[in-house]
Nucleic acid binder design. Structure first.
Lengths: 156, 156
DNA sequence: AGTGAAAAACAATGGCG
DNA sequence: CGCCATTGTTTTTCACT
């Protein structure tokens, strides 16, 4: 599954994760490769899974999604079954953008995006807290977002 | 700047944020619109800024980026100047994928992606902590990522 | 607001150096 | 890996409803 990436590939990926709307000719111009070579390399990277997919990045504000929150969750009863149910639930919740298990005293970190604080409260109180496995929830609300590019650091 | 979005727009956006590689004809098939209408609506949404950009989503593992961490930062001296320097720095750091100011006792939440724990340690000790404004740093490492789609919840 | 067809742009492939 | 030519797709525009 692993692929050998050369300098061209890395440059290509670095540009594509920022702007996937460029044509192969434009990409080639930026990295010093012909359009046909760019096409071939892209296909290879897509097949290898290095490029997972292409996405449109939307503006949350424009869609009425004003509130981003980071929610730390501690599970109480550490039964396998309860933990599994919790994982299934957060995975299925559309408000949950990210869910990670953590080291340290928090078990999970969730990134949640909702239209307003009222909805955040509803999500926490009606969805998260009633879960049997959930012991404690601590949410921090993002007041201002300095950076949100989610660009992977590629050696340049 | 605000735009009126109808049901077609919302459906279109919901699909595009998951898969921007579909052709206008394919998109039209899914939402019941002709390719030309899809094209026109996309342009409108791009111009209005609802669609910010198109991106390739890369596989961090395939690129040797094995460690994701959430780093909570508390600032000590709350001088305007120090805070500004801190913001400038995290914005410029490629390892920082996201940076938000928070409510509660943490001032900032950073999402950091690096190749390994050694690099995380270097970033925290050599970049973050030496900052004059930084009082305290508490990092949680993501052991497992259940969900990482960063898909906005659009009413369906 | 929408369709459908024509025109223009682009991606993808194969052959050659 | 560049370059070129070709083919098939796709986007975009235009005339029309």
């Amino acid at each position: 599954m692993s692929v050998a990436l050369d300098g061209f590939d890395v440059k290509l990926l670095a540009i594509l994760q920022e702007n996937a709307a460029l044509t192969n000719a434009e990409l080639g111009g930026k990295i010093g490769l012909s359009a046909s070579q760019v096409s071939r390399r892209r296909q290879k990277l897509e097949e290898a899974g290095v490029i997972r997919r292409y996405r449109a990045a939307l503006d949350p504000e424009a869609l009425g999604l004003a509130v981003t929150a980071f929610v730390g969750v501690t599970l109480g009863a550490h039964s396998k079954e309860n933990a599994r149910r919790f994982r299934d639930m957060v995975t299925a919740m559309p408000e949950v953008q990210e869910a990670h298990t953590l080291t340290g005293d928090l078990d999970y970190m969730l990134k949640i995006v909702v239209p307003d604080l009222k909805t955040l409260s509803r999500v926490i109180n009606d969805d998260l807290l009633p879960q049997e496995a959930v012991h404690h929830v601590r949410s921090s609300i993002a007041m201002d977002t300095l950076k949100d590019d989610n660009l992977l650091p590629l050696a340049r």
